[in-house]
Design a protein around this nucleic acid. Structure first.
Lengths: 309, 309
DNA sequence: CGGCAAGTTTGTCTAGGACAAATTGCCAAT
DNA sequence: ATTGGCAATTTGTCCTAGACAAACTTGCCG
């Protein structure tokens, strides 16, 4: 087919594994062992990149690199449906077959059909149930399929992009919330996944909260500035499962230190499932918890609540 | 105010300057010279981070780090309105005052007012002129203001997010294009700016092309797979001015090598202004050129055209 | 079976050296 | 006075190899 090779920066781009990690793995585990070009620089093969991508997928799922690398290549594919730590698979009524049909549309690359089918579901279910019973389980299934290698990366991108458009459209159609609290929604740098944030925004907006969407990848200092400039009561962040979980806690601590004490800090998404509770930070481990936190906040008229465990 | 300090990873996040660059600058220029913590690790002050952010801004504008670092801090602020290499400032009719009023709404953090005023302009101008005469010059002005430090980063994020929503809404309202060509729109990893891509998508969709939006940050190998799976005739990429321009050419060459020869590769955005022409890659240095390329492609029924200079 | 201590795994940081690509400066020729 | 080409400088990225702390496992004891 194609015998292009990748330099270390390209591999970092393709797999999400940092250059430091690639070099230290080579030193420790002897894999990957790339060729060297004339100047002594690493040249990775497409095979190595594929295997690294798979390993990264499984690591996001909770596996450890030392074990994975020791495993023979064939065994890797088998590992996919491993323990699902605590993320409840979400059980919508009995229409998991219809969700499967929606996924099939994505697998057939039928963007128009998918969008149309989803729009029908919005009309039928209403926005809240659409978010909780359609988008959430669907994106969970896509994540599963992706980790198992049963779906291509670009198919996942198509699903995400189309779903984001549907959600944004629905949010735009809502009357603009004027009620409290005022919530800033964004993600930290390195975190580009925004679908979870949009789900939260839809739910919050439905409850009348004033949502200020600031896009993704905001430097922490800018988040703090934005919170003060907009006189927000809450800063809501989202972390995906692909986000390096080691960084979540220090990031939240650092942002907490930058924010005035009377501004609440909420963090949700698959990336905080494994995170430990901290003072001043409300962890939202599910959309239900997010709604619950909002209600509590609205009733108290007070944003500096602690996590409801 | 706040005496938080930043480790080298945090500075990379906040400024976009890589760890390697931060270390080599310290060695070469003696700036920044951060404190060290107990373990000997760099701890940057907020002042240093601010100065680095400013330097990065000016570098994206074409200045060179060696000169900038030598300059006294006060002189830096003066440099902003430097030569504007070749990006024509775009001269919409005489309504630059009204554009200024729109920007003021952003500066006052009035999201609702901004969205409403923009929606009026869409209704008044129609989508094509809205893209070319409103969004394009506005985002150019925002970029200018950002580089000059006359606008906060979070204000720029708000503008971008609201504009993206408006564009996506307008695109969704268009009849779905069934005509040729079929165009995949995306960005490479590290490039998260998507507004330019949406502008192009709006224009292409208006001409009846079938646009397949795949979101941002697609690994190159996935772009190639997507192009084949969707039987696309064109792959359109966008590069912002913040994208490291050294990487643009090798990236385009690598993707060109991964793509079948009969699939056209178009690259646009401020990031390609300084790029050199290459065989097999069509550089779109303006929205007009993009439209022109589309027309040529539609007339020929052939996508493998070379750049019209 | 729970909890704590010791051991292992893992990512990120450090230092300074090297090199190639991009840019600039200089000089000659049109 | 501008253009072309060559040399010098600037600049980002890659290299090796060592170190350490946080996170995770394991094993032991109650």
């Amino acid at each position: 087919m194609n015998t292009t090779s990748f330099n270390i920066a390209a591999v970092e781009r393709e797999t999400g594994l940092s250059k430091d990690v690639l070099r230290v793995w080579e030193r420790r585990y002897g894999f990957p062992l790339p060729d060297r070009d004339h100047g002594g620089e690493r040249q990775y093969s497409a095979d190595q990149v594929d295997r690294l991508r798979l390993i990264k997928r499984l690591m996001d799922r909770g596996h450890r690199p030392g074990k994975l690398i020791a495993l023979p290549p064939e065994a890797l594919a088998e590992l996919a449906p491993r323990h699902t730590p605590n993320a409840a698979p979400q059980t919508p009524a009995g229409d998991s077959e219809e969700l499967e049909r929606l996924l099939d549309l994505i697998r057939q690359h039928d963007a128009a059909g998918f969008t149309q089918a989803m729009q029908q579901r919005i009309a039928r279910q209403g926005l809240q149930r659409f978010v909780q019973d359609t988008i959430a389980p669907l994106s969970w299934q896509v994540g599963q399929a992706w980790e198992a290698g049963r779906i291509q990366v670009f198919e996942e991108h198509l699903f995400t992009e189309l779903s984001k458009r549907l959600l944004r459209q629905s949010i735009a159609a809502l009357p603009r919330g004027q009620a409290k609290p005022r919530i800033i929604l964004t993600t930290v740098p390195e975190e580009q996944h925004v679908l979870g944030l949009l789900m939260a925004e839809a739910l919050f907006a439905l409850e009348g909260a004033e949502c200020i969407p600031l896009g993704s990848q905001m430097p922490l200092t800018e988040i703090a500035r934005a919170a003060q400039a907009h006189a927000a009561e809450i800063v809501a962040l989202s972390f995906s499962s692909a986000f390096p979980h080691r960084q979540v806690t220090p990031l939240l601590q650092q942002l907490r230190a930058l924010l005035p004490a009377d501004i609440g800090l909420w963090a949700g998404g698959a990336g905080v499932q494994r995170a430990a509770a901290e003072p001043g930070v409300t962890l939202l481990r599910s959309l239900d918890e997010a709604l619950q936190a909002l209600h509590t906040c609205q009733q108290r008229g007070d944003s500096t609540m602690t996590a409801p465990v």
